[in-house]
Simulated scan of single mutants.
Amino acid sequence: MPRLPHLAHLATAAVALGALAAAPAPGDGPALSRPHIVAHFDLAAGQTPENIALEPDGSADLTFAQARQVANVPLHGPTRILATLPAEANPNTPLVHAAIVLGIARAHDGTLYVAYATGTSKTGIWRVAPGDRPRQIAKLPADGLPNGLALDERHGVLYTADSVRGTVWRIPQEGGTPVAWASGTALDPVPSGSGFGVNGIKVHHGDVWVSNTDQGTLLRIPVRQDGSAGPIETRATGLGGIDDFGFVGRHGDTVLAALNSSSEVALVRPDGSHTVVLTAAAGLSNPTSVAVRDRTVYVPSAAYFTLKDPNLLLARLHHRFSD
Rank of each mutant, 00 (worst) to 15 (best):
V297G: 08
R127N: 04
L112G: 03
P310L: 04
T63W: 04
F196Y: 15
V210A: 14
P270S: 03
F196V: 15
H155G: 08
P172M: 03
P287F: 01
H36Y: 09
G29L: 08
S59A: 15
A44I: 03
A150Q: 00
S261Y: 11
A31T: 07
R295F: 04
G249Y: 01
P222Q: 08
N212W: 10
H108C: 06
Y298A: 11
R154C: 15
R235F: 11
W209D: 07
P231I: 06
P134S: 11
L307T: 01
L317K: 08
P94Y: 12
N286K: 10
P56L: 06
V277H: 02
T167A: 15
T237I: 05
I201P: 00
N90G: 03
A105G: 11
N212P: 07
L313P: 01
Q215G: 01
F321V: 04
V73S: 00
R154K: 14
V164M: 03
G227Y: 06
V203K: 05
I171E: 12
P172V: 10
I232K: 08
I171G: 07
F41M: 07
R224W: 00
G252Y: 07
A142W: 06
G246K: 03
K308A: 14
D214M: 07
A39W: 06
S263T: 10
P178L: 00
A8W: 10
T177K: 13
G240D: 03
A13K: 14
A25K: 13
H251S: 11
V297L: 12
G184K: 11
Q173D: 11
D243P: 02
T12N: 09
W169V: 01
H318Y: 09
M1D: 03
L218A: 10
L187C: 05
